[in-house]
């Protein structure tokens, strides 16, 4: 990565606690355009809290978060909604709306960000294209309950892509999937990253997924950035705390 590129995401000295549990301690990081950054850490280490702070689903206690040149703490609700349209979020649990079909799930973000005319003209094609990108065009009228775990993950990814986001946040994208499906999802993430030229932040502790997807890995330990390097360099590290993840 070139050093003079302007970061897409900047997290500066962020702290977040839940009661006595200090999840993030003076945490800082930057994500450059087109980068695939993986945040690696144990369960409960604050990875999901960090990614939710980036999209302002959780407000940090202190510190600054800048996404696509916007300080998210200074945005009003309309500005935040407009920014969120440029950020796709793949939830750990997929978060597909149970009561809606696949089509309605994918169209849901459009109802806010597109006008009625735009929806009438382009929604059908947008849904079709997003589903084709994840290889599930035939599921358009199915309910989420009729889909397998891997299919639901793909549909959730299609929904995250529907607004052509500049940034995609993945919260443990391969958790709960068998190794083959997990690999397929990791490869799919790479494909969409290339097609949409998006910057990705991936929360994961699945080493295969990290190996396939990452340009850079940040290791989160005790709420702090413990290491920041490539997957290969971390894999070869002799630091006992880093070795815990690879052994």
């Amino acid at each position: 990565m070139e050093k003079d590129l302007k970061p897409v995401i900047q997290v500066k000295n962020v702290n977040k606690s839940f009661g006595e549990n200090h999840v993030l301690r003076d945490f800082s990081m930057e994500v450059l355009p087109g980068e695939n950054l993986v945040i690696l850490g144990k369960s409960g280490s604050g990875k999901s809290v960090l990614i939710k702070c980036i999209i302002n689903l959780i407000q940090p206690d202190s510190g600054q978060i800048i996404v696509l040149d916007h300080d998210i703490n200074e945005l009003d609700q309309d500005e935040l909604d407009r920014l969120r349209a440029k950020v796709g979020f793949l939830f750990q649990s997929n978060a597909l709306y149970d009561s809606m079909t696949v089509r309605e799930n994918l169209e849901f973000p459009l109802r806010i960000h597109w006008t009625k005319e735009e929806r009438a003209k382009n929604a059908e094609n947008a849904v079709k294209e997003a589903l084709e990108d994840v290889g599930l065009a035939h599921t358009v009228n199915m309910m989420p309950s009729e889909l397998s775990g891997g299919m639901r993950k793909r549909i959730a990814l299609a929904r995250a892509l529907i607004l052509n986001p500049s940034v995609i946040l993945y919260d443990e994208p391969t958790t709960g999937l068998d190794p083959i499906t997990a690999r397929e999802i990791s490869e799919l993430m790479m494909e969409v990253q290339k097609k949409y030229n998006a910057t990705s932040v991936i929360i994961s502790h699945d080493l295969n997924c990290i190996r396939i997807t990452s340009n850079r890995v940040i290791m989160l330990i005790d709420g702090r950035c413990y290491a920041d390097d490539t997957f290969e360099n971390l894999r070869l590290s002799k630091d006992p705390k880093i070795r815990e993840f690879f052994d």
């Binding site: 939710k52 999209i55 689903l57 407009r82 649990s93 978060a95 597909l96 009561s99 109802r111």
Partner: peptide, 21 residues
């Protein structure tokens, strides 16, 4: 039950991220 289930499966968060109140 419906809203509780939507809360714990992050559907309410997904709605917020999509720009819907």
């Amino acid at each position: 039950a419906e809203l509780g289930s939507m809360r714990v499966t992050e559907q309410i968060d997904a709605m917020e991220v999509s720009g819907t109140n």
